[in-house]
Design a protein around this nucleic acid. Structure first.
Length: 293
DNA sequence: AATGTCAGCAACCGCACTGTT
DNA sequence: TAACAGTGCGGTTGCTGACAT
């Protein structure tokens, strides 16, 4: 953590507030994609923005960062939020780790605007059902007994042990037994892959896949990024980004390398081989891509 | 058509935590 | 070890558009 002194902003420009203009978005996006964010407080200065670093960080995380989903929450996402909220309470960032492409802010807003009411209604209905059934004979066949207690303990163990492994968690919440078998290897989404915590498991998986001399992991990973989620290149937010000039094939061609940051151990990964190609790099960036490698 | 009300969402604020000096 | 700075998180605010009156 912390900036080099040369990165630190000189005092104190007037900071703009309120909604971001498309031009500001473009500036921030271009800057972060090109240089990485490094020290957030220096980003607005270097990017020519009259915002504070915090505001830039938030805008990037919640809106500009690649891999974000847009649009309605699916039923499965809703169920995941409901279950995790019962488990974790208002730990929005932890809940967000299990919903690839969704931000904590988005989930929090969705909770307050939609789910909270639903839960209240459901609870009320349950309460009414219980009080009315209390008036019935104890052994009446009409008596309603609430016995639905999901196996939270095992769920919680997964949450604690493996907070970013969505695929292993989510099926326990809602997967029906009829669903087709998936690969035993985890399917990682782009946003998940960007997450600092998940990178080590990703690189392990890449290495494992490489060791086994098969491509199933990378196949799954690519599908997760570009086919299953389908938002990275379909989202209009990225139409003006340099990323848009690239097809999925391009992205995995030798011309593209991604830099990932994971808890002090930054790595460049060659997508085509899965190799850590430049481990001596140590810049604090979530993501940076490099042309003409 | 004008005004009021409400819901949804983006962004801000303040606190807590962590790393650095 | 204390002070400071950067970052992350959750609560809250305020803007905007949709709908009602």
């Amino acid at each position: 953590m912390g900036c080099r002194s040369s990165d630190k902003p000189k005092p104190k420009p007037k900071h703009r507030k309120g909604l971001w203009s498309p031009e500001e978005d473009q500036r921030l996006r271009n800057y972060v994609l090109k240089h990485g964010h490094g020290c957030w407080s220096s980003v607005p200065i270097n990017a020519g923005l009259q915002r504070n670093g915090k505001s830039c960080r938030l805008r990037w995380i919640n809106y500009l960062r690649p891999g974000l989903k847009r649009g309605m929450f699916s039923l499965q996402e809703e169920e995941t939020i409901l279950t995790l909220h019962r488990l974790l309470g208002n730990k929005w960032s932890q809940i967000a780790q299990h919903l690839p492409g969704r931000t904590d802010n988005e989930i929090k807003n969705y909770w307050h605007s939609h789910l909270k009411k639903k839960v209240l209604k459901a609870d009320q209905a349950m309460e009414e059902a219980n009080t009315s059934s209390d008036n019935l004979e104890p052994n009446s066949p009409n008596k309603l007994t609430i016995t639905q207690t999901p196996n939270y303990e095992s769920l919680l163990m997964n949450v604690e042990k493996s907070p970013t492994d969505t695929d292993r968690l989510v099926p326990q919440l809602s997967e029906s037994p009829k669903q087709p078998n998936r690969s035993s290897l985890p399917k990682l989404m782009f946003a998940e892959w960007l997450s600092l915590d998940s990178f080590s498991s990703l690189s392990e998986a890449i290495m494992a896949s490489k060791d086994q001399n098969n491509s199933s992991f990378m196949d799954n990973f690519m599908q997760g990024c570009f086919l299953n989620e389908g938002t990275l290149f379909g989202n209009s937010e990225y139409r003006n980004s340099p990323l848009n000039d690239a097809s999925p094939e391009d992205m995995f061609s030798p011309q593209f390398k991604f830099e990932c940051h994971s808890s002090g151990n930054d790595q460049f990964v060659d997508f085509s081989s899965g190799e850590d190609i430049c481990s001596e790099f140590n810049m604090k960036n979530d993501l940076k891509y490099i042309y003409e490698y």
